[in-house]
Design a protein around this nucleic acid. Sequence first.
RNA 1: GGGUCGGUCGCAUAGCGGCAAUUGCACGUGGCUGUAGACCACGCGUCCUUACGGACUACGGGGGUUCGAGUCCCUCCCGGCCCA
Length: 355
Amino acid sequence: MFSLLASSPLGRRGIIRTAHGDIPTPCFMPVGTGGAMRGITLEDLESLGADILLCNTYHLHIRPGETVVRDAGGLHAFTGWRKPIITDSGGFQVFSLTDLRDVTDAGVHFQSHLDGTALFLGPEESIRIQHTLGADIILCFDECPPSTAPREVQIAAVERTLRWAKRCKEVHDELKATSPSPPSLFAIVQGGLERDLRERCVQELVAMDFDGYAIGGLAVGETEAEMMDILDVVCPLLPAQKPRYLMGVGRLEQMRQAVKRGVDMFDCVLPMREARHGTIYLSSGERIRITSNPYMRDHSPIDPDSPVPSSRTHARSYLNYLLRADERYGETLACLQNLGVTLEMMRTLREQLTP
RNA sequence: GGGUCGGUCGCAUAGCGGCAAUUGCACGUGGCUGUAGACCACGCGUCCUUACGGACUACGGGGGUUCGAGUCCCUCCCGGCCCA
């Protein structure tokens, strides 16, 4: 499923093969939580060069519900996205919906963020839903505390995440037997900023033998140095022949640094969110606040060297106006640009790593 | 000409004796990291202070009552509506 093509102090170059196509790594996985990207189409996403889409179990479970997706023919048929799809387990919502959930060992009781309806998601539920959705890569249901949470909290989260990982794998193995093209299952390493807990978590998970390993619980409150420090602890302990996925990261510079430490996969809402909110990434590496005053009369292209055609033909003044006027097209242009620059950076990185 | 309602920080609003004065929009500057968040935070009379804070000038103009007036009274100007 994963082939490591090259490995050096600059990073790893590899390829993940799935039923819906190959994913060259290192890769950035755009976040289309509810089976869609905000502001751009999935056709846009493909033309930007994305090789895999990330969707979310919690969100799709609430709406439209996995049976609707299944009856539509699975996530690929339902969305029209033909390339690989990875689904997050819903574990992150323990972190992000902190006021709307209650964690127990059995799983998590959520209150739907839409209408308050009670719903329960545990390891078994999450894996079953992910199988039903029909993703190519699925994730274990984990507990993600803030990275700055005290050690006792991290210990409990690691132990729970390990217990849950075991249960996830058991259900996954059962379901795998009944499926013609079952998904790959990745485990998630927790442990906050506690190096020994991270070590323990990795070792236990590796012993259970998953298809890949995700590093969770980062980019949730710690400094960049702390994040890299944890990668330095975790990555060397992961098996070379399995893909590594740093969840929720991130900034371009963070991803560059993480690649050097041996990370293969990333996802992050930041490029899209910052785009919608007016921060534009340039191919030069610079970031600009396009909605600010100086750009009102800057009629030069958004990014003359952009990998995205629309950013070469449209003026900064136009994008400034569109976003200020709350025109949807502004979000579209901004999102295309930031995602385009992000994906382009990964392509460049891959080229540099190709032997 | 008579009656009536009204003139508050760019626009729109609140305020009915203790106010540099509500709220929305606009504007300004930040922030967003496995998406609950086309979002959030702060600023938005002038000047001084790193800040706490202080000084000055302000609710159409002028005058008055009052310890104190955007708020009450008189008068003038301007606008809307109604009747002539």
